[in-house]
Design a protein around this nucleic acid. Sequence first.
RNA 1: GCUCUGGUGGUGGAAUGGUAGACACGAGGGACUUAAAAUCCCUUGCCCGCAAGGGCGUGUGGGUUCAAGUCCCACCCGGAGUACCA
Length: 938
Amino acid sequence: MDYNYNEIEQKWQEWWRKERVYEVKNESAKPHYYVLDMFPYPSGAGLHVGHPLGYIASDIYARYKRLQGFNVLHPMGYDAYGLPAEQYAIQTGQHPAITTEQNINRYREQLDKIGFSFDWSREVRTCEPKYYKWTQWTFLQLFKHYYDNGANKALPIVSLEECFAKQGSAGLDAACTEVMDFSAEEWNGWDEAKRQQVLMNYRLAYLADIPVNWCAELGTVLANDEVVNGLSVRGGYPVERKLMRQWSLRVSAYAQRLVDGLEEIDWTDSLKEIQRNWIGRSEGAAVWFPLAGNEEHSFEIFTTRPDTIFGVTFMVLCPEHELIDQITTPEQKAEVEAYVTWAKNRSERERQAEVKKVSGVFTGAYAINPLTEEKIPIWVSEYVLAGYGTGAIMAVPAHDSRDFAFARHFNLPIRQVVSLEKDVVSDPTTWEESMDAKTGYSVNSGFVTGMKVKEAMSAVIDHIEKMGIGHRTVNYRLRDAIFSRQRYWGEPFPVYYKNGIACTLPEECLPLELPEVSEFKPTTTGEPPLGHAQKWAWDEEKRCVVDKSLIDNKTVFPLELSTMPGFAGSSGYYLRYMDPHNDEAYFSKEAVEYWQKVDLYVGGAEHASGHLIYARFWNKFLHDIGMSVVEEPFQKLINQGMIQGRSNFVYRSKADNGLFISKGLIKNMDDVTAIHVDINIVDNDVLDIEKFRQWRPEFANARFELEDGKYVCGWEVEKMSKSMYNVQNPDDLVARYGADTLRLYEMFLGPVEQAKPWDTNGIEGVFRFLKKFWRLFDGSDGSNGSNGSLKILHQTIKKITDDIERFSFNTSVSTFMIATNQLTDLKCGSREVLEPLVVLIAPFAPHIAEELWHQMGHEGSVCDAQWPVCDPQYLVEDTVKYPVQFNGKMRFMLELPADADQQKALEAVKAAPESAKWLTGEPKKVIFVPKKIINIVC
RNA sequence: GCUCUGGUGGUGGAAUGGUAGACACGAGGGACUUAAAAUCCCUUGCCCGCAAGGGCGUGUGGGUUCAAGUCCCACCCGGAGUACCA
């Protein structure tokens, strides 16, 4: 009987759906395991072969765990809010909800064809009110909490209010936008507006005027991870810095816990490293430098090299620094103002493009080095950033490359205070670069002279702490996440404005549903698209949304016009899958206590500094308020590598426009023009000439110069894109080879974690294997397996189990091929051998496994079978290697049959001289490896 | 610049420090067939040799080891992340 994959796959996909084979309950006597894929944004282009790569890997693991007796949660859903649907809406007027729905249906159809074991009864869509109700709810909780550094967790803001009423800000150690200092009397005397303003300074979701990444083209602000090189990630439009009043999440409060948490999770080192770099923890000191001539005023700087304080030769402020106006001398005023204006008007892109260009201006003012009491000039320069540290630095040109470049440019003094060897100094004016390394000894440095750099660092900090002019501190590069987007297609904020004060909707009134709008563009007055919504005001008494014409600012107030960013909906979706239909809570206590966390998370590394930071933050916060039970949501993380496109080219002769020359015949690449050709009319780099002539009218009369009767195309690895005609649609492959072949082939392509170009050249081999595997079962009988076939089976069990555990799915496929070839040679029809083999292959090729399982007379799904256990007696190797030692050194590798008398052999080796003559038992083969080493095969 | 990765045949890629190149593609040869498809068998890292056999081989140069693709040091080349972060 032929392997009719189309019939088999359709039949079992329907059966799985009908029998609800993949639905799981939140209770079971079995141990639990949660396998999650990063849910997709359903784009209009549909899936290409790169998308399912990770899904196939996680599906294999999920199915494997299920066969091993785990209750496996393996859900799927859609990250349905996003910019492309909105931009499409602006262009066509088509509502994003409609296009999103269409795209989701298309995705679902494509996913179903590949035979995934998702529990679709738990599907979530971030754009549905019953889902985003809980996104909004979490926002409210963030708004209602602050971060207490002492307790090291989020606490209710009401407890902060009580504290302020009793003792003001005294003794408070909380994450905040700016440090505040007030007494209980002051607090109690303030009106509501002022108090709210103060509380806003502490809330975890807060409104503040902050410099944002404004993208005029998209009409919205963007988070730091949505901007690369001054351009928006989506669309590549220029982004400028602008001060705007925006909602933000105080992610920075969790910076240390986000660093610490990396220790306990099982992610790749490179991914952890990306996160560590993004968080950018650096230890150092905050030091106050007094102003010369005005010593009671001082300003704070941050340095990671307190040991170099004796080498400070100038100070630098960022152009935004508030001190500039106060300290600039009249003579320097014009120049400083011109510089500041120039710097502020530069676009982020210009600034980044000219990073190497040194610019700056002297303020005319001086500071006092608190340790040397020297007078040092204060400069202003762009190279000091407003957003990091305090926006002011002490410059040590001898030991910081940027300070060095600045000093050279403006001819400022350079003083060496660190040397690789004790008491050895050189003339810094001859240096070609600064000595930045934190190694060596302090020189010319007062009381720390002669100390090692590390010792000097803490000695200086101790000293300035004693003097009361500074302290040890830690700085993070991680900034708070800007949470407002001036867009339509996102979650509305459950917030209204009562005479300028942000108030939140009562929790019972959630979800606040996204209103209908007449247009998806910003309004003519520059408001976000929600400004077009008629019914967009909050009636405090009726507790409902009303028409905005009713706004009277007494009981009816305007609602927030921004929406939440993409990462809002994706930050907690893994928790919602645990209990997706709960209308009373985000998820029930029982559900989260049962599943705990995601055991295996599979997705792209491009989310390292976005989603994976936000989701960890989100989960830590939910943990603090008693919702999620563990701090780290994703125990093990696998990054599937990106699949690139493999483009094919034909070469048109420059001399003769109708002539195409086969690749091997081209003498000089300058004589031809390479033209992208659709990969669907190329097979194994050989062009289908007829299809090519039909492909486009201008090629209808193409002539060819062939090699061996074939036209061979060139190829190159590029991004998978329509314009390069290298997009491979999985549906075509499923139709041609079946889903099982596609699944196996995607795995066979190489390690899951490695980036690789898509290439169908090998798919025939995998297809051949499945056909062979299928044939193996023709005429299978109830006989017992021979020793040889059982050996093959048990070695296969061992190898496949090991491979799956280390996510080495490409070698698993090879293992199946080897076993199938061997069993075919043995003409093995034994049920005892073949039945476990079906179970082994079920995670990889579920359709064929299901069909064979039923043909063998089983009633239920192969998914409910038992993963076979390997019997060690069949694993014994034919030969065993024994290292033989003389004088404690390994001298021989003795290879003996597994059942040989090893003791006797070893004794014989020891007794004999160093040659192979003496070995009893007639050596079959004596291999002299290098010089003295002998491998002896008996 | 810094951090992380990787470098093995014509190609994708295998190798707990122990016979490098499994498995697959491609290529070459053959069987079956009127023919094609399908299937099966043999060869296939490079060099010398009719052969038996020998020599060389995992980016480069050193080192550790009886033994290195694998471990250590330096360098070269690719890929990714990040960047005046003090």
